[in-house]
């Protein structure tokens, strides 16, 4: 059977549970994004040092790897999700302060936020309405992610501005692909846990925002 026909042949019960999963995921995603914005604002106002970003990202990833898989099927998972997203939002403080100190900083941050929102809503809406199965992208996306990690690692030491721009562009494309992939996994039954689905989409949005801001900051006319 063609993969496109699977959703059409699914029983009503399965469709209802998919709709519930999608609804819960988007509600939780909205709440975590709002919470992230609050912790980011707090971090901007507190003017936290630059290493906060690194500490927050490492802390959040330790929670994602070690704690979330064990708690995602219980109500504790919700607390962990807010912990992860709050921490990642707090880590944005030094980056936002750096851009906000530029002459067109508020415009850059606002454009990156609005741009991220439009990209996410457009791609997620496309995946939801088309009901296509994007699972064939999985191998390509994860291989791309490994290549990006290696490029980031290399650029830590060689510090090429052009490579930084290429990495940011690649991350935006990869995360856009992951939005299609993750949304289609919810629609087609590949993901049944709304907490895990939320974290996946949150990470896509977070990475698009950070790298779009980096691209806009580097390529904007006003330095």
């Amino acid at each position: 059977m063609n993969r496109l026909d699977i959703s059409a042949a699914r029983p009503t019960e399965s469709v209802l549970s998919t709709n519930k999963l999608i609804k819960n995921t988007y509600i939780l995603l909205s709440m975590t994004l709002l919470f992230s914005a609050v912790t980011a604002a707090a971090s901007v106002m507190l003017n936290v040092p630059g290493w906060t970003y690194m500490a927050s990202i490492i802390g959040a990833f330790l929670l994602i790897w070690l704690v979330l898989p064990r708690t995602a099927h219980s109500s504790t998972g919700l607390v962990v999700v807010f912990g992860i997203t709050g921490l990642m939002g707090f880590g944005l403080g030094p980056i936002l302060n750096m851009y906000l100190s530029m002459a067109n900083g508020p415009q850059l941050v606002g454009t990156a936020m609005a741009g991220t929102g439009i990209i996410f809503l457009g791609l997620s809406g496309y995946a939801l309405s088309s009901k296509r199965d994007f699972s064939f992208m999985g191998g390509f996306l994860v291989a791309g992610l490994l290549v990006v990690f290696m490029a980031i690692l290399a650029n830590l030491f060689i510090a090429l501005p052009a490579l930084q721009l290429a990495i940011s562009a690649a991350v935006i494309m990869l995360m856009s692909g992951f939005i299609l992939y993750d949304t289609s996994r919810m629609v087609n039954g590949g993901e049944t846990n709304y907490i895990m689905a939320t974290i996946g989409l949150y990470l896509n949005i977070y990475n698009i925002f950070v790298h779009l801001l980096s691209l806009l900051g580097a390529l904007s006319g006003d330095d």
Binding site: N2, R3, L4, S135, F136, G138, G139, V142
Partner: peptide, 10 residues
């Protein structure tokens, strides 16, 4: 694992 399990694109 993901690269191995990913279905082929149609």
């Amino acid at each position: 694992q993901m690269m191995k399990d990913t279905p082929k694109a149609e």
